[in-house]
Design a binder for these strands. Structure first.
Lengths: 325, 325
DNA sequence: GAGCATGCCGTGAACGTTCACGGGAGCGTT
DNA sequence: AACGCTCCCGTGAACGTTCACGGCATGCTC
């Protein structure tokens, strides 16, 4: 006899099917004691026959023991975000948390859509947002939020500090004899990036010019094209620093195809950098630390404990020497 | 006056703080009509002051409109699984579903742990499992389960069919003049892989020997080492087919470092294959289709609709020609 | 045979929210 | 003055589960 599908099967259905009470069903299913072996089996059979599945909502209501957080990522296929996501997943698992992942596809609209529904599904939110603070605030309504890589007076945020790392990168290039060092930047808005600023500062300490800068699209092809353009305009460049590893890998390809000698240093320090040949030298971010920090901060916010602040929330980029420079 | 933190703030707390009833608070927060503008603002302020957050459990109980599925992945950092996960996320988002992601870290123990808790958190499960059917069945208890890349009489599963794709790969190599074609296999258990079987079958149609086979670890380094070993034992090999793209990339590196000419064809067709130079030719799996199919099947099972079956559930691998062969 | 412990089971209550309904105040219409 | 309409607002009920408690047998002890 098939059950009506639109109607949910409850614990009471199982109870009456097995000829017992709710409580006995609950005991059978949750492996509590105080139940006869035979009765237990009968209940289990009835539950299976009816296709009974307990409501997670009802259970959560009466026993609110599980916490789950939302992880918002602009593009899971971008290896950097993949690493951050994996790290956050690991940190959350260590706490027994569940992680609901949202890929906003680099779109403000998707971000908004996510924000609308996320509030009703998770206890806290962690990740990347491009929306305005006002808009974020409206939909999160006091829910703990941890932003990554974006400062905000309103929300907790973990900060990426790359000045020192980029300086060591430039130092490294200079001590290898490079004087004309270019950069492949990426600018999503009109203004240049933090990384560009760090680069300029580092170059300044050596009294070097920072005129050889081009912007690239965020892809291997984008990096390849940008480097061609850069070398076209500044043939004397002997080394480049790039906005991130993806662009650097594209640059590396151009270097090889042109048969040129050119030092390349990327940014992010992705594992992906060990896949290419030569392996990519990069100013590395500890993605595991980023994920762990974000989750840790969410935990504190959730527990009402003293949240991390100041330097405890920054991740320092460090030069990771491999082969490309 | 600070609220006691262990005690949850309910809608009633807000109601009494604003001097109204539950229902009015509900109206204010959910933008329903039938409420005075002034009253609404007062309620909103009270809610904000108290830091009120509605219980997703209570809401879900009375209005069960959101479905969420579990996505179980052995290793999110493996690019293949990243792609599948991204595809599943996209397909789920199109349905308005929430996706809880679990990375089981290639460990049976973690799989078990996930299985224990997942049942109480999602409406269906999709992904990769290595556990026995019996063990799966026990913990999922009739919840819809869609397995990927693993046959099972008990559960829905989407099947990977690579025989034809591998045959085109071998055909391609043969028509390019190759006769001694090796393979870099990966064997997690004692027995060789499906892909090995497909390779042997394809070679057999050309009457070629399949003695040049080595197993590799699933990493770039593993592929590099394995190719060295293979060439050592079979110096006459002029082309290799590999278990997957990661191993192929390692092989490619060895090829370049040794300064040899060698055709390489991988398996999976990852986007990662366009990052290396030369770009990797591969027997490609449509990861988006895999993710979409899995979600689609979960939807049917959940709705009690006619589930997909037979050929509708298989994903055919096809040769993707790039540069390495 | 009275008393007591033990094993097994059922009944009210509670969790926090929304839905369906009812009702009062204020204003205009006839 | 009675009626009706609109605008607000509140009260019981329901969602499905677990917890705390109570109760009925049964068997044992003295």
């Amino acid at each position: 006899m098939t059950q009506k599908l639109t109607q949910r099967i409850t614990i009471n259905d199982v109870a009456s099917a097995a000829g017992v009470s709710r409580q006995t069903v609950s005991r059978a299913l949750n492996d509590k004691g105080e139940i006869d072996r035979e009765t237990k089996q009968r209940v289990l059979d009835a539950a299976r026959d009816l296709g009974y599945r307990p409501s997670r909502f009802a259970r959560g209501l009466v026993r609110p023991d599980t916490t789950s957080i939302g992880l918002v990522i602009p593009d899971l296929l971008n290896p950097f975000f993949t690493e951050v996501a994996a790290a956050a997943l690991e940190a959350a698992r260590a706490r027994g948390w569940h992680v609901v992942v949202y890929d906003t596809a680099d779109s403000l609209e998707e971000e908004r859509g996510t924000l609308q529904v996320i509030g009703t599904q998770v206890d806290a939110v962690v990740g990347y947002f491009s929306l305005s603070e006002a808009e974020l605030d409206e939909h999160t309504r006091g829910m703990p939020v941890v932003l990554i890589g974006r400062q905000s007076p309103r929300f907790s945020s973990i900060r990426i500090e790359g000045a020192a790392g980029v300086r060591s990168a430039v130092d490294h290039l200079v001590s290898a004899g490079h004087r004309r060092i270019g950069m492949l930047d990426y600018a999503n808005r009109a203004d240049p990036s933090d990384r560009h600023a760090w680069f300029c500062a580092a170059m300044a300490t050596h009294g070097l010019a920072t005129d050889a800068v081009t912007t690239a699209a965020q892809s291997v092809a984008g990096g390849a094209e940008a480097l061609v353009e850069l070398l076209d305009r500044h043939p004397d460049v002997t080394a480049v620093f790039t906005f991130n590893d993806i662009i650097a890998i594209g640059a590396l390809r151009t270097v090889r195809r042109l048969g040129r000698e050119l030092a390349v240093i990327g940014f992010d320090g992705l594992q992906l950098g060990t896949v290419v040949d030569p392996e990519l030298t990069s100013v590395a971010l500890d993605t595991r630390r980023i994920g762990a920090l974000a989750v840790e901060q969410a935990a504190r916010l959730l527990a009402g404990a003293e949240p991390l602040a100041g330097d405890d929330l920054v991740v320092q980029a460090v030069l990771l020497l491999r082969e490309s420079a």
